[in-house]
Design a protein around this nucleic acid. Structure first.
Length: 311
DNA sequence: AAATCTTACAACCGCCCTCTT
DNA sequence: GAAGAGGGCGGTTGTAAGATT
Protein backbone atom coordinates (compact mmCIF):
# COMPACT_ATOMS: atom_id res chain seq x y z
CA UNK A 1 0.00 0.00 0.00
CA UNK A 2 3.01 2.19 0.46
CA UNK A 3 5.96 2.94 -1.72
CA UNK A 4 8.81 0.62 -1.07
CA UNK A 5 11.87 2.18 0.50
CA UNK A 6 14.43 3.59 -1.86
CA UNK A 7 17.18 6.19 -1.91
CA UNK A 8 17.09 9.25 -4.07
CA UNK A 9 20.09 10.68 -5.89
CA UNK A 10 21.06 12.65 -2.80
CA UNK A 11 21.14 9.56 -0.66
CA UNK A 12 17.99 10.45 1.20
CA UNK A 13 15.70 7.60 2.02
CA UNK A 14 12.18 7.74 0.62
CA UNK A 15 9.17 5.55 0.80
CA UNK A 16 7.69 3.59 3.63
CA UNK A 17 8.92 4.16 7.13
CA UNK A 18 10.23 1.22 9.07
CA UNK A 19 9.35 0.65 12.73
CA UNK A 20 12.97 1.35 13.58
CA UNK A 21 12.83 4.73 11.90
CA UNK A 22 9.58 5.48 13.68
CA UNK A 23 11.19 4.60 16.98
CA UNK A 24 14.14 6.84 16.28
CA UNK A 25 11.97 9.75 15.34
CA UNK A 26 9.50 9.30 18.16
CA UNK A 27 12.21 8.86 20.69
CA UNK A 28 14.15 11.86 19.53
CA UNK A 29 11.13 14.13 19.57
CA UNK A 30 10.05 12.90 22.95
CA UNK A 31 13.43 13.77 24.29
CA UNK A 32 14.32 16.90 22.41
CA UNK A 33 11.22 18.22 20.75
CA UNK A 34 11.14 19.35 17.16
CA UNK A 35 12.24 22.92 17.21
CA UNK A 36 13.97 22.51 13.87
CA UNK A 37 12.80 19.96 11.36
CA UNK A 38 15.73 20.66 9.12
CA UNK A 39 18.30 19.48 11.58
CA UNK A 40 16.22 16.88 13.29
CA UNK A 41 16.86 13.92 10.97
CA UNK A 42 20.61 14.35 11.26
CA UNK A 43 20.46 14.51 15.01
CA UNK A 44 18.04 11.65 15.24
CA UNK A 45 20.19 9.51 12.99
CA UNK A 46 17.69 9.32 10.18
CA UNK A 47 18.54 9.52 6.51
CA UNK A 48 15.27 11.26 5.76
CA UNK A 49 14.56 14.80 4.79
CA UNK A 50 13.08 17.07 7.41
CA UNK A 51 9.85 17.35 5.58
CA UNK A 52 9.43 13.63 5.55
CA UNK A 53 10.08 13.48 9.29
CA UNK A 54 7.61 16.22 9.96
CA UNK A 55 4.95 14.52 7.90
CA UNK A 56 5.52 11.21 9.59
CA UNK A 57 5.35 12.78 13.02
CA UNK A 58 2.37 14.98 12.37
CA UNK A 59 0.30 12.35 10.64
CA UNK A 60 1.16 9.14 12.41
CA UNK A 61 3.48 9.33 15.38
CA UNK A 62 2.28 12.41 17.17
CA UNK A 63 0.37 11.58 20.34
CA UNK A 64 -3.33 12.07 19.99
CA UNK A 65 -3.56 11.13 16.36
CA UNK A 66 -6.69 9.08 15.92
CA UNK A 67 -6.51 6.11 13.62
CA UNK A 68 -9.25 3.95 12.28
CA UNK A 69 -12.58 4.63 10.74
CA UNK A 70 -14.31 7.96 10.84
CA UNK A 71 -17.46 8.23 12.89
CA UNK A 72 -20.68 9.45 11.39
CA UNK A 73 -20.31 12.67 13.38
CA UNK A 74 -16.86 13.24 12.01
CA UNK A 75 -18.04 12.68 8.48
CA UNK A 76 -20.95 15.03 8.99
CA UNK A 77 -18.56 17.65 10.18
CA UNK A 78 -16.23 17.10 7.26
CA UNK A 79 -19.11 17.47 4.85
CA UNK A 80 -20.25 20.59 6.55
CA UNK A 81 -16.85 22.21 6.80
CA UNK A 82 -15.98 21.26 3.27
CA UNK A 83 -19.18 22.87 2.11
CA UNK A 84 -18.17 26.01 3.90
CA UNK A 85 -14.51 26.23 3.16
CA UNK A 86 -13.64 23.84 0.38
CA UNK A 87 -10.37 21.94 0.39
CA UNK A 88 -8.98 23.66 3.43
CA UNK A 89 -7.96 20.39 4.98
CA UNK A 90 -5.80 21.79 7.69
CA UNK A 91 -8.61 24.03 8.84
CA UNK A 92 -11.07 21.17 8.74
CA UNK A 93 -8.61 19.08 10.70
CA UNK A 94 -8.49 21.69 13.41
CA UNK A 95 -12.16 21.06 13.99
CA UNK A 96 -11.80 17.29 14.14
CA UNK A 97 -9.68 16.60 17.12
CA UNK A 98 -7.21 13.81 16.58
CA UNK A 99 -7.58 13.77 12.82
CA UNK A 100 -4.88 15.07 10.56
CA UNK A 101 -5.35 17.04 7.40
CA UNK A 102 -3.79 14.26 5.39
CA UNK A 103 -6.13 11.67 6.78
CA UNK A 104 -9.16 13.83 6.23
CA UNK A 105 -8.03 14.61 2.73
CA UNK A 106 -7.54 10.94 1.94
CA UNK A 107 -10.86 10.04 3.46
CA UNK A 108 -12.54 12.71 1.45
CA UNK A 109 -11.06 11.54 -1.81
CA UNK A 110 -11.75 7.88 -1.21
CA UNK A 111 -15.08 7.93 0.58
CA UNK A 112 -16.82 11.24 0.62
CA UNK A 113 -15.97 12.89 -2.65
CA UNK A 114 -17.91 10.49 -4.81
CA UNK A 115 -20.88 11.00 -2.65
CA UNK A 116 -20.62 14.73 -2.99
CA UNK A 117 -21.25 14.37 -6.71
CA UNK A 118 -24.72 13.13 -5.94
CA UNK A 119 -25.57 16.16 -3.92
CA UNK A 120 -26.93 19.07 -5.91
CA UNK A 121 -23.96 21.29 -6.37
CA UNK A 122 -24.61 23.09 -3.15
CA UNK A 123 -21.03 23.23 -2.16
CA UNK A 124 -19.97 24.65 -5.46
CA UNK A 125 -22.80 27.10 -5.45
CA UNK A 126 -22.06 28.13 -1.97
CA UNK A 127 -18.32 28.22 -2.43
CA UNK A 128 -18.84 30.47 -5.40
CA UNK A 129 -21.12 32.74 -3.44
CA UNK A 130 -18.70 32.83 -0.57
CA UNK A 131 -15.86 33.65 -2.87
CA UNK A 132 -17.90 36.41 -4.45
CA UNK A 133 -18.94 37.82 -1.14
CA UNK A 134 -15.37 37.60 0.03
CA UNK A 135 -14.04 39.62 -2.84
CA UNK A 136 -17.02 41.96 -2.55
CA UNK A 137 -16.29 42.63 1.04
CA UNK A 138 -12.69 43.19 0.21
CA UNK A 139 -13.55 45.56 -2.55
CA UNK A 140 -16.04 47.46 -0.46
CA UNK A 141 -13.59 49.02 1.90
CA UNK A 142 -15.66 48.40 4.96
CA UNK A 143 -14.10 47.72 8.32
CA UNK A 144 -11.09 45.52 7.69
CA UNK A 145 -11.80 43.43 10.76
CA UNK A 146 -15.31 42.79 9.67
CA UNK A 147 -14.44 41.53 6.24
CA UNK A 148 -11.71 39.34 7.56
CA UNK A 149 -13.79 37.84 10.27
CA UNK A 150 -16.60 36.94 8.00
CA UNK A 151 -14.33 35.16 5.57
CA UNK A 152 -14.91 31.44 5.74
CA UNK A 153 -11.42 30.86 4.56
CA UNK A 154 -9.68 32.54 7.40
CA UNK A 155 -7.70 29.79 9.04
CA UNK A 156 -8.04 31.34 12.44
CA UNK A 157 -11.78 30.81 12.36
CA UNK A 158 -13.02 29.02 15.39
CA UNK A 159 -15.23 26.03 14.94
CA UNK A 160 -18.12 27.90 16.45
CA UNK A 161 -17.73 30.62 13.90
CA UNK A 162 -17.52 28.09 11.17
CA UNK A 163 -20.60 26.26 12.20
CA UNK A 164 -22.41 29.51 12.53
CA UNK A 165 -21.74 30.21 8.90
CA UNK A 166 -24.23 27.66 7.72
CA UNK A 167 -26.87 29.12 9.99
CA UNK A 168 -26.13 32.70 9.31
CA UNK A 169 -27.43 33.32 5.84
CA UNK A 170 -26.47 36.92 5.95
CA UNK A 171 -22.83 36.02 5.50
CA UNK A 172 -23.56 34.82 2.00
CA UNK A 173 -24.81 37.78 0.16
CA UNK A 174 -27.59 37.32 -2.31
CA UNK A 175 -28.36 33.70 -1.52
CA UNK A 176 -31.51 32.24 -0.15
CA UNK A 177 -29.72 29.58 1.80
CA UNK A 178 -31.67 28.11 4.60
CA UNK A 179 -30.45 25.92 7.33
CA UNK A 180 -32.81 23.24 6.07
CA UNK A 181 -30.95 23.26 2.79
CA UNK A 182 -27.74 22.59 4.50
CA UNK A 183 -29.08 19.98 6.86
CA UNK A 184 -31.18 18.12 4.38
CA UNK A 185 -28.38 17.85 1.91
CA UNK A 186 -26.19 16.58 4.66
CA UNK A 187 -28.76 14.06 5.79
CA UNK A 188 -29.42 12.81 2.30
CA UNK A 189 -25.76 12.47 1.73
CA UNK A 190 -25.23 10.63 4.97
CA UNK A 191 -27.94 8.09 4.26
CA UNK A 192 -26.82 7.11 0.82
CA UNK A 193 -23.25 7.37 1.89
CA UNK A 194 -23.81 4.91 4.69
CA UNK A 195 -25.50 2.48 2.37
CA UNK A 196 -22.61 2.60 0.01
CA UNK A 197 -19.80 2.27 2.47
CA UNK A 198 -21.10 0.33 5.42
CA UNK A 199 -20.14 -3.02 3.97
CA UNK A 200 -16.63 -1.95 3.15
CA UNK A 201 -16.14 -0.45 6.56
CA UNK A 202 -17.35 -3.42 8.52
CA UNK A 203 -14.51 -5.53 7.18
CA UNK A 204 -11.82 -2.93 7.36
CA UNK A 205 -12.81 -1.59 10.71
CA UNK A 206 -12.50 -4.97 12.34
CA UNK A 207 -9.06 -5.35 10.93
CA UNK A 208 -7.91 -1.89 11.90
CA UNK A 209 -9.32 -2.08 15.37
CA UNK A 210 -7.82 -5.42 16.11
CA UNK A 211 -4.50 -4.06 14.98
CA UNK A 212 -4.80 -1.13 17.29
CA UNK A 213 -5.82 -3.33 20.13
CA UNK A 214 -2.44 -4.97 19.90
CA UNK A 215 -0.60 -1.73 19.58
CA UNK A 216 0.56 -0.59 23.00
CA UNK A 217 1.30 2.91 21.85
CA UNK A 218 -2.09 3.30 20.35
CA UNK A 219 -3.63 1.81 23.40
CA UNK A 220 -2.09 4.43 25.57
CA UNK A 221 -3.52 7.14 23.42
CA UNK A 222 -6.97 5.69 23.30
CA UNK A 223 -7.11 5.23 27.01
CA UNK A 224 -5.81 8.66 27.73
CA UNK A 225 -7.96 10.56 30.20
CA UNK A 226 -7.28 13.69 28.27
CA UNK A 227 -9.68 15.06 25.81
CA UNK A 228 -8.22 14.99 22.32
CA UNK A 229 -8.05 18.75 22.25
CA UNK A 230 -6.07 18.84 25.43
CA UNK A 231 -3.69 16.13 24.44
CA UNK A 232 -3.16 17.71 21.08
CA UNK A 233 -2.46 21.10 22.48
CA UNK A 234 -0.24 19.75 25.18
CA UNK A 235 1.77 17.59 22.90
CA UNK A 236 2.11 20.00 20.11
CA UNK A 237 3.89 22.13 22.61
CA UNK A 238 6.38 19.41 23.38
CA UNK A 239 8.78 20.80 20.91
CA UNK A 240 8.81 24.31 22.18
CA UNK A 241 7.78 24.08 25.76
CA UNK A 242 9.85 21.33 27.22
CA UNK A 243 9.37 22.52 30.73
CA UNK A 244 5.77 21.45 30.65
CA UNK A 245 6.74 17.82 30.93
CA UNK A 246 7.35 16.71 34.46
CA UNK A 247 10.23 14.38 34.98
CA UNK A 248 12.15 15.58 32.00
CA UNK A 249 14.89 18.09 32.42
CA UNK A 250 15.00 19.93 29.18
CA UNK A 251 18.08 21.91 28.58
CA UNK A 252 17.18 24.20 25.74
CA UNK A 253 20.63 25.64 25.50
CA UNK A 254 22.11 22.20 25.06
CA UNK A 255 19.76 21.40 22.26
CA UNK A 256 20.34 24.67 20.53
CA UNK A 257 24.06 24.54 21.00
CA UNK A 258 24.14 21.12 19.49
CA UNK A 259 22.04 22.27 16.61
CA UNK A 260 24.51 25.02 16.03
CA UNK A 261 27.40 22.60 16.14
CA UNK A 262 25.71 20.44 13.59
CA UNK A 263 24.76 23.41 11.54
CA UNK A 264 28.40 24.21 11.10
CA UNK A 265 29.17 20.69 10.05
CA UNK A 266 26.41 20.29 7.49
CA UNK A 267 25.27 22.32 4.57
CA UNK A 268 21.88 22.58 2.93
CA UNK A 269 19.54 20.40 4.80
CA UNK A 270 16.48 19.61 2.74
CA UNK A 271 18.27 17.94 -0.08
CA UNK A 272 21.71 17.21 1.20
CA UNK A 273 22.66 13.55 1.44
CA UNK A 274 23.06 12.16 4.88
CA UNK A 275 24.74 9.04 6.13
CA UNK A 276 22.58 7.65 8.86
CA UNK A 277 22.95 5.08 11.57
CA UNK A 278 26.70 5.27 11.80
CA UNK A 279 26.81 8.86 12.69
CA UNK A 280 27.92 10.10 16.02
CA UNK A 281 25.24 11.59 18.20
CA UNK A 282 26.74 13.90 20.76
CA UNK A 283 26.35 13.25 24.45
CA UNK A 284 23.73 15.93 24.65
CA UNK A 285 21.42 13.55 22.81
CA UNK A 286 21.43 10.31 24.72
CA UNK A 287 19.14 8.51 22.36
CA UNK A 288 19.91 5.12 23.76
CA UNK A 289 17.60 5.67 26.68
CA UNK A 290 14.58 5.38 24.48
CA UNK A 291 15.18 1.68 24.43
CA UNK A 292 14.21 1.41 28.06
CA UNK A 293 11.12 3.42 27.37
CA UNK A 294 10.00 1.03 24.71
CA UNK A 295 11.06 -1.95 26.68
CA UNK A 296 8.74 -1.47 29.54
CA UNK A 297 6.01 -0.04 27.42
CA UNK A 298 4.53 2.46 29.79
CA UNK A 299 7.58 4.28 30.95
CA UNK A 300 8.09 7.84 29.88
CA UNK A 301 5.11 8.48 27.72
CA UNK A 302 2.64 6.89 30.04
CA UNK A 303 4.10 8.91 32.83
CA UNK A 304 3.63 12.06 30.86
CA UNK A 305 0.06 11.19 30.04
CA UNK A 306 -0.74 10.59 33.68
CA UNK A 307 0.88 13.76 34.83
CA UNK A 308 -0.96 16.11 32.54
CA UNK A 309 -4.39 16.25 34.13
CA UNK A 310 -2.86 17.07 37.48
CA UNK A 311 -1.36 20.29 36.19
C1' DA B 1 -6.50 -20.32 -9.63
C1' DA B 2 -4.95 -16.60 -12.31
C1' DA B 3 -5.51 -12.21 -14.28
C1' DT B 4 -7.36 -7.84 -14.07
C1' DC B 5 -9.53 -4.04 -11.94
C1' DT B 6 -10.55 -1.08 -8.01
C1' DT B 7 -9.84 0.88 -3.58
C1' DA B 8 -7.41 2.90 0.18
C1' DC B 9 -3.93 5.50 2.05
C1' DA B 10 0.98 6.53 3.14
C1' DA B 11 4.15 9.36 1.30
C1' DC B 12 6.11 12.66 -1.95
C1' DC B 13 6.22 17.03 -4.52
C1' DG B 14 5.98 21.67 -5.27
C1' DC B 15 4.03 25.95 -4.18
C1' DC B 16 3.23 29.50 -0.92
C1' DC B 17 3.54 32.00 3.42
C1' DT B 18 6.08 33.72 7.34
C1' DC B 19 10.02 34.94 9.68
C1' DT B 20 14.71 36.30 10.01
C1' DT B 21 18.77 38.55 8.42
C1' DG C 1 12.71 46.14 0.87
C1' DA C 2 15.09 41.85 -0.83
C1' DA C 3 16.68 37.34 -0.25
C1' DG C 4 16.86 33.04 1.83
C1' DA C 5 15.44 29.48 5.04
C1' DG C 6 12.05 26.95 7.39
C1' DG C 7 7.67 25.24 7.74
C1' DG C 8 2.84 24.29 6.30
C1' DC C 9 -0.54 23.01 3.02
C1' DG C 10 -2.98 20.90 -0.85
C1' DG C 11 -2.58 18.02 -4.86
C1' DT C 12 -0.95 13.91 -6.64
C1' DT C 13 1.29 9.45 -7.02
C1' DG C 14 2.62 4.64 -6.11
C1' DT C 15 1.41 0.40 -4.59
C1' DA C 16 -0.46 -3.29 -1.45
C1' DA C 17 -4.66 -5.47 -0.59
C1' DG C 18 -9.11 -6.68 -1.74
C1' DA C 19 -12.77 -7.48 -5.18
C1' DT C 20 -14.26 -9.04 -9.43
C1' DT C 21 -14.08 -11.49 -13.70
Amino acid sequence: MVRGPFYDKNGLKKGAWTPEEDDKLRSFIHRHGHSNWCKLPRLAGLSRCGKSCRLRWVNYLQPGVKRGNFTKEEEDLIFKLHEEAGNKWSMIAKNLSGRTDNEIKNHWHTHLKKHEKKIPKTSQRKAKKIKESESDSLRASCSPNQSLESSPLTTELSSSKLSSLSCDNSTVTGTNWTEEDSLSSLETSQNSFENIHLKKYSKKTLKTESLHANDPFHHILESSPLSPEVSFAKFSSLGSDHSSIPGITWIEEDVLASFETFDAAFGDFWTEPFVADNMHIPDEFPISSYISYYDDGTDLFDQVMQEFPKN
